[in-house]
């Protein structure tokens, strides 16, 4: 017999952000873009922060960005991460502007420079959830 490992936190999916997580499951990274003024932002917002329009869509982005910074967690704030400490968390600046928190795959951030190019890669947690993560650009 083996115990089920403690669960990791999952995204709180609501009417505003459902499109993002549906697209991620289909292998597409998106940000919310205003249909009226074109402003791009992430996370999602019930109205466009630039023009207050309610007409917004989850628009595909290139999946390319730069490493803005990173942190290595030596403390597990959730039991689900206890087996993974010390694990990395990165801050990515997407080409299209918005920033995203994620994890770096295929390398450790200590071996990269702030400003290095990254690209999205999709990690399926289970049938219902896929997390966009990042790796050094051209690593495939």
């Amino acid at each position: 017999m083996h115990d089920t490992p403690p669960a990791k936190p999952r995204p709180m999916i609501d009417a505003t952000n459902r499109g993002f997580w549906d697209a991620a499951r289909a292998g597409t990274l998106t940000v919310q873009r205003c249909d009226d003024c074109g402003h791009s932002h992430y996370p999602g917002s019930p109205v466009c922060p630039n023009c207050l329009s309610s007409r917004q869509s989850w628009a595909p982005v290139s999946g390319r960005g730069e490493l803005l910074s990173w942190v290595r967690f030596h403390r597990a704030y959730w039991d689900g991460f206890r087996e993974e400490v010390p694990y990395n968390v990165i801050l990515v600046g997407l080409e299209e502007g918005p920033m995203m928190i994620s994890n770096l795959l295929g390398a450790e951030p200590e071996s990269l420079q702030v400003g290095e190019a990254l690209e999205v890669v999709f990690e399926a947690v289970d049938d219902t959830l896929t997390l966009p993560k990042f790796r050094p650009a051209g690593a495939a």
Partner: peptide
């Protein structure tokens, strides 16, 4: 709880770690 929990990211300390890492760089 926050938007970035699925990545294991949480706490004000981590935010300041991100900033200081960037300041060092």
């Amino acid at each position: 709880p926050g938007v970035w929990d699925p990545y294991g990211y949480t706490s004000p300390g981590a935010a300041h770690a991100l900033m200081f890492q960037r300041h060092m760089a």
